[in-house]
Amino acid sequence: MKSVGQFVRNYGPLVALVLLFIVGAAMQPEYFLKPENIRNLFAQNVDIGLLAIGMTLVIVTAGIDLSVGSILVLSAAVGLEVINGRASGGETSAVWVGSGVAILTGAALGFLNGMLVAYGRLAPFVVTLCGLVAYRSAALVVGKSGEIRSQAGEVFPNIANSGIELGFLRTATGNALNIPFSVFGLLIVAFAVHFALERTRWGRYLVAIGSNERAAHYAALPVARVKTSAYVVMGVLAGMAGLFAASRLNSVSTGSLGGLKELDAIAAAVIGGASLSGGKGRIWHTLIGVLILAIINNLLVLQNVSADWQGLVKGVIILLAVLVQRERRVE
């Protein structure tokens, strides 16, 4: 009953991840398996993880969002400007307000994308391509085409960097391992969205719309509203990602932050088996995709492979992933 093809589609990404992990452990046992290296695999990819989760939702509806890197930077820029404007009146409250503004900015931009796609009946590729250039440009305007430095240096970096010390895990120098809150944030978001996609009406409607939009319309589903909501969630997650990325550096460089991140997010979803023609995609598969990309990067760095080569390797890996998971054509 369960064919090889089905097994590959269900567990292929997981098997690939385990294999990569073993390869990594064999190649660089003393560095790769260090607790702080594993921790960094997660901590350094929180932003891509958040984007990829949102991207999976959008892709499941047979859409695409190329603007997420730009939403990320614009949300972060706007959020940080708000924080800087209020920092003199108390950093903590400024950071709270600014964080809220950043996420709302992401939501608003996602809403705009979604409305244009769902109600304006424009191709997602085109709408979000415009977003990609426009939102980046807006971020440059906000940041006066340069870097925005945080003036809440006491509090703001805590969002990404502070965390919980796990006593039972020790770093090489013997200190307790610190797991940043952002990693927990990613995992909580992943769990919640996974649950929403698999177990709620909203999630099933996303799948139904992406699988066969006309049938979904005939079944009287609120197609346009549900589609829009996918882009809104995407925007919220891009805003969160922007917040974490800005907090890690305690600044936003409006020219580069979030650049090309949309491609990593799409790649992670695709490696995880999401189909760009819609209807297929699971959050935990996408997270595995994020980790696969992260480990490849990590290994290339540990092996001192020049950065010039990394894109080439990534491209080949993604192609392989798609080839293996390609559905046999039904005759």
Partner: peptide, 19 residues
């Protein structure tokens, strides 16, 4: 007009899912 990526019961309930 069934949704290929959903199962039979999900299709039957589509739009009127018990929650």
């Amino acid at each position: 007009n069934l949704i290929r990526d959903l199962n039979v019961s999900e299709n039957i309930a589509l739009g009127m899912e018990p929650t």
